[in-house]
């Protein structure tokens, strides 16, 4: 598990490259997180396609895990619901394969290492490649422990996307940049995932982003954790390539529980995240 081994810069997929190459300076890349199987298994494909139509540039598809210790209560809730309803790992590859029939939006998988090990590393990456996955985020696998998955990741062209946090050193940021492919995920605050009030995402974020821009030079930078509105997103990602929203989407779906038109209303919320309210 040595960190010393020299590793070439991971190539992003063509789909992922296109997203960042075609970005105009004023627009921010919006990466939306959704837990596979939430609120119901049959909703996930439709939600992904709807997100794309309403402004999402990248989809982060969550692989539910019983003990998501880097996530807050919102994502733990959606994961539990999905697992209770019978989620299995093969559903992930089915969802991506179905989306791929109709869309070329980049999809990165986000989840925890245990179910991946259990599924079988080689099988997991082979299936992911076949289905058309553009990257993998494992918040409980820091660079130190990547030895486990590096080879499979390389041989199946599914780059790993690592996180950096406000307390990461400059050296650490450079290392993460070197090992990541597609983008680097910046955690805006120390803490777990979850929507926060606007003023909690304070000025120190700006200084953090300045450090990021100095140290992360090979990959685009997306910033996340705590973004719940268009205003949050614009302020936090001012100096970054884009932003990630997750818990706020799940909260929005939960708030629309029982509403016959929940999908349309939810997609309107998505549109407003990207473009602001009309």
């Amino acid at each position: 598990m040595s960190t010393a081994a020299a590793v070439s810069i991971k190539a992003a997929s063509e789909r992922m490259k296109r997203v960042f190459e075609e970005r105009v300076e004023s627009a921010k890349i919006m990466n939306l997180f959704i837990t596979a199987g939430f609120p119901r298994k049959e909703d996930t494909v439709e939600l992904i396609l709807g997100y794309e139509k309403n402004g999402a540039d990248i989809i982060e598809l969550g692989m539910p895990f019983s003990d998501p210790l880097a996530d807050g209560p919102t994502i733990q809730y959606s994961s539990e619901k999905s697992i209770e309803a019978g989620f299995v790992m093969d559903d992930i590859f089915d969802i991506v394969a179905q989306v791929r029939k109709r869309s070329q939006i980049p999809i990165v998988l986000m989840g925890y290492i245990n179910p991946v090990i259990h599924y079988g590393l080689e099988k997991f990456f082979a299936k992911g490649q076949e289905a058309g996955i553009d990257g993998l985020i494992l918040p409980d696998v820091p660079v130190e422990e990547s030895g486990l998955i590096q080879q499979a990741s390389q041989s199946h062209n599914i780059p790993l996307i690592y996180l950096v946090a406000p307390n990461s050193t400059d050296e650490r940021m450079k290392l993460v940049d070197q090992r990541s492919g597609g983008f680097v995920y910046c955690v805006s605050v120390t803490g777990v995932t979850g929507a926060r009030k606007g003023d909690e995402v304070d000025e120190s974020v700006k200084r953090f982003i300045e450090r990021i821009n100095k140290n992360i030079t090979n990959n685009p930078v997306l910033i996340g954790f705590g973004i719940a509105s268009h205003t949050d997103a614009m302020r936090i990602s001012e100096k970054a390539d884009g932003f990630v929203v997750g818990s706020a989407l799940i909260n929005n779906i939960r708030s629309l529980d029982g509403d016959a038109e929940w999908k349309e209303k939810h997609f309107r919320f998505v549109r407003e995240l990207k473009f602001g309210s009309a």
């Binding site: 880097a70 409980d140 820091p142 130190e144 993460v176 955690v187």
Partner: peptide, 20 residues
């Protein structure tokens, strides 16, 4: 030195905890 007892151990934690 990496915290392994043979094949077992390590530090599978979020990036934020690495400095700690």
């Amino acid at each position: 030195s990496s915290g392994y007892f043979g094949k077992f151990g390590g530090k599978f934690v979020p990036e934020i905890l690495i400095p700690a």
